[in-house]
């Protein structure tokens, strides 16, 4: 059955839907509207019904739900088999996956089995037309998925298409898309899938799962004070912690600052690191390498503080402060405290 729908693969982490899956549902809903098709979700697990309400409220019209004991924990082969079976049966035109560790384990296997394209770590997805010239002829494609991603270590932006293959598939990193407002009244149809998993596919066993608390939650922070190598020392980073605390925010860092040992990698923002979109981003002593900008340029407001007036970070900053952070940061703290009263 050719459903032609736009689907999101719903990832379950520790019994909960991963945020990235909800972010993607919002995007899938937008894409489906543009294409005038339904927005679908694929859900695999041992108690899928627990998540139906949440998935519908985030925009799905239809849930393809598979329950099987071998789907309790993610392992590559059973999940690949079941997702491929559902795709082959219902033939969506687009499938989106979160670029989590498990999403990046699963999506390529599915692409390989179905012999379709897959674009990793997209930062934007759009619908548009495409023309291809081949041997003097122009072939036109309408309403295909533009898969937009940084390439070449984040130095260029590429728009990738897979015009001749369905489904078109992409992964998107957590935090890149925004979760759409929930609609408590939205509901839809559940299609129960008979998971067909033979014994030979159960080859991996998860024998231990260890959770390590991250020292900071950058994704949910509305204010981030981030430091670069220009901060100069671990001690100077303390001033950033103080500013963040005063403003009710958290501390982030560029890769260079992490590599310099000023702060641990949980705080790293950028192409290799976490993507954030806070209300306010204060970049202190960050020169503005493209790798860093890729992870924060969608922030609502950006303040840049740097001694070098030509630093590239100033090109994307809404507020530019040329000056020494050791003077500027304490003054900002003081001014905030005064005006807050």
């Amino acid at each position: 059955m050719n459903s032609n729908e736009v689907w999101t693969y719903i990832e379950i982490q520790n019994g909960k839907i991963a945020d990235v899956s909800l972010e993607l549902l919002g995007k899938a809903q937008d894409l489906a509207k543009k294409l005038s098709v339904k927005c679908g979700a694929i859900l695999l697990g041992t108690n899928p019904q627990n998540h139906y309400k949440n998935i519908f409220e985030h925009g799905a019209d239809i849930i393809y739900s598979a329950e099987h004991f071998a789907l309790e924990n993610y392992t590559s082969l059973p999940f690949t088999k079941v997702v491929c079976d559902i795709i082959e049966e219902y033939q969506p035109q687009i499938v989106l996956y979160g670029a989590t560790v498990n999403g990046r384990d699963l999506a390529p296997r599915i692409a390989s089995k179905l012999k379709v394209g897959l674009t990793a770590d997209c930062t934007e997805l759009q619908i548009g037309d495409y023309e291809k010239k081949k041997k003097g002829e122009v072939k036109k494609y309408e309403n295909i998925l533009y898969q937009i991603r940084p390439a070449f270590g984040g130095n260029i932006i590429a728009t990738i298409v897979s015009p001749n293959h369905r489904p078109q598939m992409a992964t998107v990193r957590p935090g890149v898309m925004k979760i759409n407002k929930t609609d408590k009244t939205n509901s839809g149809k559940v299609v129960n899938i008979q998971a067909n998993i033979s014994e030979e596919l159960i080859l991996s066993e998860i024998i231990k799962t260890i959770q390590i608390e991250k020292s900071v939650n950058l994704n949910s922070a509305s204010i981030i004070v981030a430091g670069g190598v220009g901060v100069g020392s671990k001690d100077n980073f303390e001033k950033l912690h103080e500013l963040a605390k005063t403003l009710g925010g958290v501390v982030g860092a560029s890769r260079a600052a992490v590599d310099a040992g000023y702060i641990n990698s949980d705080h790293q923002i950028g192409q290799t690191g976490i993507t954030v979109q806070p209300k306010l981003y204060i970049a202190v002593g960050i020169s503005g390498q493209i790798q860093h900008i890729a992870g924060m340029s969608n922030s609502n407001r950006i303040i840049a503080i740097n001694t070098d007036k030509d630093a590239p970070i100033f090109q994307i900053a809404n507020y530019r402060i040329v000056g020494d952070l050791n003077k500027v940061v304490p003054q900002l703290i003081e001014t905030f405290k005064k005006l807050k009263k």
Binding site: I156, I157, T159, V161, S162, P312
Partner: peptide
């Protein structure tokens, strides 16, 4: 299956 439609310099 995947083709590069276009490459852009990053515009800040």
């Amino acid at each position: 299956p995947t083709q590069v439609k276009q490459i852009e310099n990053i515009v800040l």
